[in-house]
Simulated assay, not measured.
Amino acid sequence: MTQTLSCACGKFQVALVGDPFITAECHCNSCREGSKRLSSLPLSRPMTAANGGTPYVLYRKDRVSFPDGTALLRGYRLSEKAPTRRVVTTCCNTPVFVEFNGGHWLSLYASVWHDSPAPAMQIRTQTADLPAGTQLDEALPAGAWTTAGFYAKLLGVWIAMGFKVPKIDVAEAEPA
């Protein structure tokens, strides 16, 4: 099964084969800071949930393609040496994905699913990074063991891919 999603204006598309290997709402410092910085762009869709977490739908890179290429994408890093980049479209500033240097997966923003509901979130990760006093509901599993299981899942997917790390060429913007 292949699913095609598009940016808000329809000029950019991403094609996904099969189902995601996991969905996760991330609360790490990097995701919170990245969302804060990118909110200075006139984003066409929100990147975060009401609780401040960032909902992602994770796919193996070998199951993601860009039918119209990547010319309409721009990557933003928190610093020149940041291990992650947040990628949005240049046509309408739709948040598309987060990519880790050397990563074998893409964390697609759940907001890319605008014509249909995004897959339901399964877990919360990196909740130890939440600011003091932040309270989350108990709708999703969270905590150190959940995050450890998440990393184990990433390793299992990488093994299934034969330890390959497909490259995605995206133009980089100045640090956001």
Rank of each mutant, 00 (worst) to 15 (best):
V165L: 09
P55W: 14
E174L: 11
A24T: 14
S6E: 08
Q13D: 04
G156K: 13
R124A: 03
H114L: 08
L16C: 07
E25A: 05
G53V: 01
G69Q: 09
S79N: 15
P141E: 01
A118F: 06
Q126W: 03
T23I: 05
T48P: 04
T48M: 07
D115P: 03
P20N: 11
V14K: 00
G75R: 03
A118T: 06
Y59E: 01
G53R: 08
T2S: 12
T2H: 13
R85Y: 05
L41K: 06
A49C: 08
G34H: 15
A148Y: 02
V17F: 03
T127V: 02
L58A: 03
R32S: 10
E138T: 09
G10H: 06
R77W: 15
T23Y: 03
G69S: 04
A118C: 06
Q126R: 14
A50Y: 09
K11H: 15
V14W: 00
E80Y: 11
S30T: 11
I22Y: 05
S44H: 01
K167N: 04
C92G: 06
L154S: 09
L140P: 02
L5H: 06
A176G: 13
C31G: 00
N51G: 08
V88L: 10
R37W: 08
A176C: 14
M1N: 07
A139H: 03
R124V: 00
W145F: 02
P95I: 04
T54L: 04
C26T: 01
G133H: 06
P166N: 12
G18P: 13
I168F: 03
L154Y: 13
D137R: 07
E138P: 00
G133Q: 15
V112A: 01
H114P: 10
A173S: 09
M47F: 10
V165E: 03
V170L: 04
T94M: 01
Q122M: 12
L72K: 13
R74M: 09
Y109L: 12
F150Q: 05
T147I: 07
L108I: 02
G103N: 05
V57D: 08
L108V: 02
P141F: 03
A24F: 00
F150K: 04
K11W: 14
K164Q: 10
I168T: 13
L58T: 12
G52W: 07
T125P: 04
W145P: 02
H104S: 09
P117G: 13
S107H: 02
L155N: 14
D115C: 02
Y76F: 14
N51I: 11
G156L: 12
G103H: 09
G156A: 15
V165Y: 07
I168Q: 06
Q126H: 14
K153H: 12
D68H: 15
S107R: 05
F12R: 01
L78V: 12
D129M: 12
V87I: 11
L38T: 06
K153Y: 01
G18C: 05
L72P: 05
R63H: 13
T2Q: 14
A118Q: 10
E174T: 07
T134P: 03
Q13P: 00
L130H: 04
P119I: 04
P55A: 13
E99Y: 02
C7M: 07
A24P: 06
R77H: 12
P166E: 10
G34K: 08
P42H: 00
A176V: 05
L5S: 15
M121C: 08
V96W: 00
D68W: 04
K61I: 10
V98G: 14
R124W: 00
V98P: 00
A142R: 00
L154E: 13
A71E: 08
